[in-house]
Structures are given as C-alpha cells and as structure tokens.
Design a binder for these strands. Structure first.
Lengths: 151, 151
DNA sequence: TCTGAAAAGGCACATCC
DNA sequence: GGATGTGCCTTTTCAGA
C-alpha cells in the first residue's frame, strides 16, 4: 500500500469504470503493472466492489429520514433487532452507537405516506424497541463521494 | 423507466463493472439494446456515476463518528456553514434536518486522536455553531448496498 | 421508435522479458 | 515494473418489426 496504490484508489473512486489503460496513463504506469496492482487491491479486499450510483428520485426513493432508535441493551435483543434491520430494504444505512441513541438508521422511501406506513408497520413493531425518533432530511448537504485517500 | 431499466439499475448497483454483454444476458436483452438503455440512463442522470467501494480501514478511515450540530438558523450562517463542510474531507456525509439537531455529519478518520484534532481545530471553530455533539460509531450494522429498486 | 445482427477497432488478460 | 500478442468485448452501423 504505497502512494501509487492510493492514486489508483482515488481514481477508481472517482470513476469505477475507468479502463485499465486510462487508469495506467493517469497514474503514470504501464498497463500491465497497473492491472497487477488493481487485481491485488481487489483480491486483498481493499477494493470491495464497484457500484453504479443512481439518482434516488428516479427510483422512487427521494424522501429520506434519519431515525434514532433506542433498544433494550441486552445481547439477544440487540442481535435480533440488528438482524431484523437487514430485512427492511428501505433501511439504507444502520449504525450502532455508543451512548444515546443506541442506533441510527437512514431510510429512503418514496414520500411521507410511504414512511408513515413503514413506521407503523415495521419500525414500531420491532421487539425490544423502546423509542423511535424520526427526523426528516431537508437536504443532502454533502454527497457521498467515497472516502478521502491521502496522497 | 420500465421493468427492464430497473433490472439494469439493480445489476449495476451490485456490480458496476459488469460488461455490457454479461448485463444483457442477465436481463435477457441483446447487447446493443442493453447498451442503448444503459447509455440513456447515464445521459439522463439516473446513473450518476460508478465508484469503487474501498475498505475504510485500508486507507486509515476506520474510525467513524456521527456529529450532531446546531447552527444559528439564518440564511447566511447556514449557507456559510454548509459551504465550509465541503472543504473538510473527513466529513463523508452531511444532512440538513428539520427539527433538532439542524445538521448531522458522518465523519471518518483514522482514530480517536485524529478525531479530537478535527473536533478542536475545525468543528468547534465553524462560525454560527452553537452546539456539537459527537457519537462514536460502535459498529456499522448495515452496509450501504445502494438503493433498493422495485421490480 | 423500438430491437436484433454483424463488423471493426480497442481493450483485457496472460505470458513473456 | 514493462512489452507483446490473442481473443473477447465494446461500439457503431444497418436492417427489420
């Protein structure tokens, strides 16, 4: 993991479909050397995959909500709760936190009505949940552009 | 935007480097028809780009913090504050919310020491900020796998 | 205007140095 | 780390539904 590897990561975060040839050119390496490095980064798990980034509005997911959830803090409850989250596709991200709230979700749905349905049907009925606090997102201030990679 | 387009989006979210041929095969379309659709999705902005997903640990960003920030709520302060966020690379995501807190950040740094430095040097000194509340992430419960796309 | 088929150039990948 | 060659893929153009 040297400066060149980090350049590769920076470029592929910007454009995951760069051809190996273009990539090699940008970082000043021969195509074969470049490909060897990329392959190694992929196989070692540093590059976990490639994804298309799609417009939430276009697929009916333009309404986002942050949900703070308090769960009873014993191992079984927490594990069951976190497993249940995996089965709710509208939950885009989920974090377990120190302190309070114990958990934060980012949810993406079509509109307020869809969120109301989700809230009443699936969120409040999760076992062990003692508190649910929903905050509607007014604006995404900073788009996820991947992680900054030092030079 | 029909069922086939949504299939394309689903596949490209899973694997953004799928070759056009593979993609066409998976969704049951000829290569040229498939490519035309992909191109159209790209040009219309439905597909905003492609990114490599990289392991935060591997680039020294394994320590994540959620930061609730309260800012004075007048237009100038909010705009200056949000502009300032763009210049802090450690801020990975930022949302402006209804209610309280007015803003939530997700921050990725190397470790607690790095976060302390960021907190004292850059966060608390932002103009208009009246409250900063940091919550360390214990665990990422649900990995961002992109948006769910209906069939 | 949608799709499918064929041709040409470019690229990935493996194997060499 | 760099160079070369083969085979496959992307991409364009053209014909049909």
């Amino acid at each position: 993991m040297d400066r060149i590897d980090r350049s590769i990561l920076r470029e592929l975060q910007e454009d995951g479909r760069l051809t190996n040839l273009d990539l090699a050119q940008r970082i000043g390496l021969s195509a074969s050397a470049c490909m060897r490095r990329v392959r190694h980064l992929e196989e070692s798990g540093v590059i976990q995959g490639y994804r298309a980034v799609i417009d939430p509005e276009a697929v009916g997911r333009g309404f986002e909500v942050l949900v703070s959830i308090e769960v009873r803090r014993d191992r079984e409850t927490v594990e069951a709760f976190e497993a249940a989250l995996q089965d709710i596709p509208d939950v885009i991200e989920a974090y377990r936190l120190f302190g309070s709230p114990g958990c934060l979700l980012r949810i993406a749905v079509a509109d307020l009505a869809a969120y109301e349905r989700l809230w009443i049907e699936r969120l409040t009925s999760l076992t062990g949940v003692t508190e649910v606090n929903s905050q509607i997102i007014m604006k995404r201030v900073k788009e996820p552009r991947g992680l900054p990679v030092e030079r």
